[in-house]
Write a protein that binds this DNA or RNA. Sequence first.
DNA 1: CGCCAGCTTGAACGAGGTCAACGGGAGTGG
DNA 2: CCACTCCCGTTGACCTCGTTCAAGCTGGCG
Lengths: 248, 248
Amino acid sequence: MKEINAALLPQAQGGPAAANGVRPCVACEARGLAVCGALSDHDLAELSDVSRKRTLEAGDPLFFEGDEPGAYYVVRDGAIKLYKLMEDGRRQVVGFLFKGDMIGETYRPTYNFTAEAMEQTELCQLSKDKFEFFIDGSAALSRRLLTLASSGVADAQNQMLLLGRKTAKERLASFLLWMSEHAVERGDDPLHLYVPMSRADIGDYLGLTIETVSRTITKLKKDGIIELGDRSLIHIKNLSGLKMLAGD
Amino acid sequence: MKEINAALLPQAQGGPAAANGVRPCVACEARGLAVCGALSDHDLAELSDVSRKRTLEAGDPLFFEGDEPGAYYVVRDGAIKLYKLMEDGRRQVVGFLFKGDMIGETYRPTYNFTAEAMEQTELCQLSKDKFEFFIDGSAALSRRLLTLASSGVADAQNQMLLLGRKTAKERLASFLLWMSEHAVERGDDPLHLYVPMSRADIGDYLGLTIETVSRTITKLKKDGIIELGDRSLIHIKNLSGLKMLAGD
DNA sequence: CGCCAGCTTGAACGAGGTCAACGGGAGTGG
DNA sequence: CCACTCCCGTTGACCTCGTTCAAGCTGGCG
């Protein structure tokens, strides 16, 4: 039962981790963050039976826009980007997922975006049918998923305001603030941001080119708002200044 | 019980229609379209008890961004726009609602946008607490709401692609196609669109100015793609041409 | 060391914004 | 019935922000 979808997977999991097979969700480090927090220990133990660990390397796709959803995924660790492509290659990143986030295309016939790992990422893969059976049986889980979907809509609407009406500087400032707020939720330092996405990813998320992203970051640096560190780290030196710049 | 929230309403309903009070949801013309379709006749009869009819005139606000949600609303007839404002007045329309659509800020602490009628609009107002009690008790309703929320997210992501990466012409074409598809869902003629929104509304939805909207519509007219009729009517003369222009 | 991918910086361009003038239909009042 | 106003949409001329094109820079890795 753990292996039902193995044949459909883009890449089957290899290496030493595979030997561990399913780990109990009860002890999952992402449990507190994730949707699984809505379930009792007993339910979670059952969920373990329909879940399966997946590991992706940087650049690996999880699924493509238009694919039929075969599973739900919870990010245990790492970072995923979600994007849509136009025929001529124009790209729009519609979201980023980090530890505890879920891919919630609940009850949709096809995925509306492509999902791709930005770095090595561990996922919990939940069988679609089994998980939906769980949803129907648990009002708490339904409620949690509805709440998540609603905040997903709210996030998307904020992004619409950004894309439709904000200047390049306001977009960058809003993006950094968003990253900061989500760092808080995950219990990370909100002033020393780990930003695993490339300039191209940021540009495609903010509706800008890599050049504009680069230039705007340089300006923020010169204004003393932020500082760039090693390994994708961005230090926010002036949070209130950043909030001013974000507009709203 | 029908009147519990009457004191909180921005404008109490007046005129002859008020005398009717609550009309049974069972016979509601929007039932087939709306979320209520997920409920049995029996449940709907109960829902009638916690629902109340509201009528808005063009320009009337239903609620403001930041307000605490006190109710859920289903549009029975008319048209509503949802928008967010920045301090300096820049505006982003994040959605339009028509017959059968629901305002689904499920389980959120505040509304994320302002809702305003674009023409005379009839709404069914459902008590928040009562309706949430219904949700918890009905897996079918939960499922329906989750499906709606998911397609709301998908819609929002498509709009992100539009706002982030499409040209003015592509935006207008995509908008008209979107209107056409939703006309089909509502059982209206998909080639003779009723477009109740002003140029300003369209511009603020597409991240453009009224001037650019006007110029672009003129171009579409000159290219023989569309034709403008009386009373907010737009006739699509070349649907496949429109699809070409929309990109994706 | 050399190569390549990702990032930065500069210079010129252009799609859409801004500013301004005008037109036409609905409502109002004489 | 016309004169007047107001609002909305259209059109034109000019400008600007972000894009495009191009050149260098930096660091990781063979």
